[in-house]
Design a binder for these strands. Structure first.
Lengths: 119, 119
DNA sequence: TCGTTGACCTACACTTAGTGTAGCATAGTA
DNA sequence: TACTATGCTACACTAAGTGTAGGTCAACGA
């Protein structure tokens, strides 16, 4: 079992963010130690890592909660979940292309600067 | 000259966002028509497009304002601006790599789902 | 034994980057 | 003349956290 500090470190999340996700229902209320400190299993840690991944792809907290509810509902929701993840994958691909064009824009600006232009 | 609606459309920004940027000092207070409506020049439009680009690369509004102040200060700030844009470019490259690894994570999740696993 | 870290707890305030809404003015159109 | 579109300001609200105050508890060193 991991403390919230360890979990945060492992998952690359802020402690406050983990508590926030718990409040929002993205996680079951964590088990507690005798000192009332949150304790996380390996599985919960993996889920935190995946939450982080989904958040970074731009999925909203509320949508992740919907997804989590589906996971809990069992294999009947698999097709729906596959669709959801595929859609997220599409968005991510679009986003990567957008980033590349932003990169080009920055490079173009740098070129102008290298030529001594002020704009 | 462009109205705020046209500017928003051209730059791909929300009208409210443009007014917000003006309030934050990322833009000079726009010229006004006889009807008190904001009017934008081609140059201002280009700047709006670049603001959008910088925002999408993750640069904060306050940092864009710093950058804008440097642009206004003239060519003496060119080296500093080059540094800033280069740093932003680096961040963007890191971000693109992160997105690719998120993509891999989603694909891995899909593979598990295709195999009928629930997690 | 005392004191002081360090990690945790809750509750609440604050932040960022906008978006949405209410209430109003004005211009062009049917 | 009525309606619709577009614009204006000011203010409220949102998302996704982050930061802070005030408190508990265990462990470590003098």
């Amino acid at each position: 079992m991991f403390t919230i500090g360890q979990a945060a470190k492992e998952a690359g999340l802020n402690i406050g963010a983990i508590r926030f996700y718990e409040r929002k229902g993205l996680l079951e209320p964590a088990a507690r130690s005798a000192q009332n400190n949150r304790l996380y299993t390996e599985n919960e840690l993996n889920w935190l890592v995946f939450i982080k991944c989904l958040r970074e792809t731009g999925m909203g907290v509320e949508d992740i909660k919907q997804y989590y509810d589906m996971v809990k509902a069992g294999t009947a929701t698999l097709p729906e979940r596959i669709k959801l993840i595929q859609e997220q994958k599409e968005k991510l691909l679009v986003d990567i292309e957008a980033k590349k064009s932003q990169l080009a824009h920055l490079e173009q600006k740098l070129d102008r600067y290298y030529r001594g232009e002020n704009y």
